[in-house]
Design a protein around this nucleic acid. Structure first.
Length: 360
RNA sequence: UACCCCGUGGUGUAAUGGUAGCACAAGUGCCUUUGGCGCACUUAGUCAAGGUUCGAAUCCUUGCGGGGUAG
């Protein structure tokens, strides 16, 4: 493996333990590293920030880690791209009654987009990230595999990476579990070794959900409407379809004697349909658009695989059938719960991620 | 106007003389590099005022509120 590693690499440092350890691992192998922290819009207005993952505190941790490792550290301004390619896209999705997946977009456009471009521009051979996924390289090319820690595997969010992006990426944490990584952090003496996990969207303000923040940011007009049951009977009013997603239970504010779940969102009328029957959430098929193939030989043909509908969801046996219009139909071996438009379907062959697309 | 029925936490209900329970909702926490699901915990009630009784959501009286029936 070592001979394939470029001598000079950019280490994507977020401030968290993972990316710092990833950098440390490569440093041990004698690489010349340059630490870079992506600055996204969320890093502004620290006092208003709810999360710590992109706040000023993380910038300090990132700087501290780079310092400890003895490598230069820079911030890369990606605010505009983040706003356009991730946030605006996400808001648009909400307006269509879909549920965006900002992390997948961010990976494709920011971390493995803007940041990778920057790395190449300054003459680095690629980037190192702290994702819990494995990238394998051999004569036939690059491939992405699940991380060995099933609780931390993040390959789902990386389905949108092209083979080219993968080829210039390095994810040294894939073979390790979270606790092993933390142990390494201690050994390396990293200042963020005991830092708590970051979680939730890295962009959002206090007491607001991601959707609410986006609505305010883009001065969007919430598509208000009614919460109805399957028969069309109105049950309550709601403040905007962006506040709902398929399968959602909490936040509906309606007491029907049994839990009620969102089964459909109609962007045109603003209706949100709920049902007390969880069976209404079950379906064994879906179609997906804008496919991305990391394994070229899977494109355009029918195949069987393990398909995953959501992050941390269980992958299920499925058959993928190409459609004439370039989309794909996925038929699952068993019913899936709450297939959600806007989320990704990701195809695995064993541990290997072969491709994926966006659920219609 | 008379007669009848009903009135329990935010919602729907259980308990007809003896510790006011359940479901849903809501809140908090856990989980989680999206959204959701899930799990744990918590909050909150007998319409009001009198009376009977050792003891009342439960019985009686009145009032208030809602519904029904009275050519």
């Amino acid at each position: 493996m070592s001979e394939e590693i470029p001598k000079k690499l950019v280490a994507a440092i977020s401030g968290g333990v993972d990316s710092s350890v990833a950098a440390a691992i490569f440093l041990e192998q004698g690489c010349e590293l340059i630490a870079v922290t992506l600055k996204m819009r969320s890093c502004e207005n620290p006092p208003d920030k709810r999360k710590s993952c992109c706040g000023i505190e993380d910038d300090m941790y990132a700087r501290g880690a780079a310092e400890k490792l003895g490598i230069p550290h820079y911030f890369l301004n990606a605010r505009e791209q983040f706003e356009e390619r991730v946030l605006r896209n996400a808001w648009h999705e909400y307006s269509l009654g879909r549920t965006p997946n900002p992390c997948a977009l961010c990976n494709r456009h920011l971390k493995f987009g803007a940041l990778l471009d920057y790395a190449v521009k300054i003459g680095a051979g690629g980037i190192i990230t702290g994702h819990y996924s494995r990238i394998e390289r051999n004569e036939s090319g690059v491939s992405l595999h699940r991380g060995v820690d099933p609780e931390k595997d993040q390959s789902y969010f990386l389905f949108g990476l092209t083979p080219e992006q993968l080829g210039k990426s390095f994810m040294p944490l894939g073979p390790f579990t979270k606790s092993e990584v933390r142990e390494k952090a201690r050994r390396f003496g990293l200042p963020n070794a005991e830092k708590t996990e970051s979680q939730d969207a890295c962009f959002g303000f206090r007491d607001e959900t991601f959707a609410q923040t986006l609505c305010g940011l883009f001065k969007g007009t919430p598509r208000r409407g009614l919460i109805k049951d399957k028969s069309g009977k109105a049950i309550a009013e709601h403040d905007g379809i962006h506040l709902f997603t398929i399968g959602q239970r909490r936040g509906l504010g309606i007491a029907l004697g049994a839990p009620a779940y969102v089964v459909e969102i109609r962007p045109d009328s603003g209706d949100v349909i709920v049902s007390k029957d969880e069976n209404d959430l079950l379906s064994d098929r879906l179609t997906a658009s804008n496919l991305n193939w990391q394994a070229a030989d899977f494109a355009g043909r029918k195949f069987s695989c393990l398909a995953q509908i959501r992050y941390r969801g269980k992958a299920v046996e499925a058959e993928v059938v190409p459609l004439p219009d370039g989309r794909v139909e996925v038929k699952f071996e068993k019913n899936m719960r709450a297939i959600t438009p806007g989320q990704a379907v990701v195809f695995y062959e064993g541990e290997r991620l072969v491709g994926g697309g966006w659920i219609d």
